[in-house]
Design a protein around this nucleic acid. Structure first.
Lengths: 199, 199
DNA sequence: ATTAAGTGATACACGCCTGTCGCAGTTAAG
DNA sequence: CTTAACTGCGACAGGCGTGTATCACTTAAT
């Protein structure tokens, strides 16, 4: 709905849209309540121009989330393309998302802030993620069946691992790789052992 | 630092402080950017009175976090008092914190929003939580050694389980109890199996 | 009952962000 | 080159939240 709203833009205008989005990400990562003025300044543009490209602050934020959803899709493609074993897919995906968390910190948190029960992720991304867990289950790596639960646990552990200081003991134990740590934790959380109690 | 700043307050004033805090929690849970006016109205008081009791918005928020930290401490006491087995302690603690997440939703999220690497939790609460994981490790239930990692994983999984819809498949599998689900996931994530990959 | 504390109501100053104009100058596109 | 698009600049109106202060009134404390 935001891609090509009317007729084609001039090249420089299109270019400025990119600069605004990049600047917004950069500035809002530092101060989530930053004004459009600050964003424009960081983009080397005027507030007026920001308004010309994005009718409202809300519109700008929506453009940011749409952009991140595209990166997510691309990440999913990159990691599962070669029909690799599901654990490898999970590890690759994790590594890419770690990079996204660095370059798109603000938007990541924006999308994590659920309103109600929505995840902020596009349906396509959610479906792609679900596929990863379906394959993990088929391969016997996990036992959990709920798509929501799997996705939430994964993203949560990914996030926490990312917040971890560089010299954390558990990181060393995982061979210095945050991705390794996440993969192990996710597999453990989603059910290495079937059911130690009842049922 | 906020308890008994100067001389004693009159009884009704002290009472109003409690009403303001309760109203703030209630209102901010719905709209985190709500004005002091809205909070005052919800408390049956005027904005002026809110300002009399809390010099600034910032001061009010700090009072909220201090309050929640006290609840955390009390929760830790309640769950580990009887020297119960660590897994039971974890489950009890989880159940209590679930209730806190309902009654203190806003403040929970306020404290989760880390600025830098601080957790928002008071040192006492962090220490108490660490003790729980130390005992879990001594009992052989987990293998992870990092205090930060353990705490973060626990709180994250707790949060995600709480966000889960009531009819989630994994909840049924865990015997309908979110606390059960969290305990299993935490134990799994923090290392049921030592190290399936390398040295 | 007396006094000090507390509240309601109202008003004001201040600052900030948003959204929208218009105009002059610059730049891409054909 | 010529035109239409785009930007910078400045200005404006409107809204909202904060923080402070004053004054009359009510209430707890002793």
């Amino acid at each position: 709905m935001s891609t090509s709203t009317g007729r084609r833009l001039r090249a420089d205008a299109e270019h400025n849209i990119a600069r605004i989005l990049a600047a917004a990400e950069e500035v809002l990562a530092v101060d989530p309540a930053a004004s459009l003025e600050q964003i424009g300044e960081a983009a080397g543009l005027t507030r007026a121009t920001v308004h010309r490209r994005f009718a409202s602050r809300q519109a700008l934020l929506e453009a940011l989330t749409e952009r991140l959803n595209q990166r997510y899709l691309s990440a999913l493609d990159q990691s599962k393309a070669e029909t690799a074993p599901p654990l490898v897919v999970l590890r690759r995906l994790t590594e890419i998302v770690f990079e996204l968390k660095i370059s798109h910190r603000f938007t990541m948190e924006l999308m994590s802030a659920r309103d109600g029960c929505r995840s902020g992720l596009s349906p396509e991304v959610e479906a792609g993620l679900e596929q990863v867990f379906v394959r993990l289950r088929e391969a016997g790596e996990i036992t959990a069946t709920g798509a929501d639960w799997c996705r939430q646990v994964y993203l949560a552990l990914l996030h926490e691992a990312h917040e971890l200081p560089d010299d954390a003991a558990d990181l060393v134990a995982a061979g210095r790789s945050r991705a390794e740590l996440v993969v192990r934790a996710v597999v453990g959380a989603l059910g290495g052992a079937p059911s130690p109690v009842g049922g």
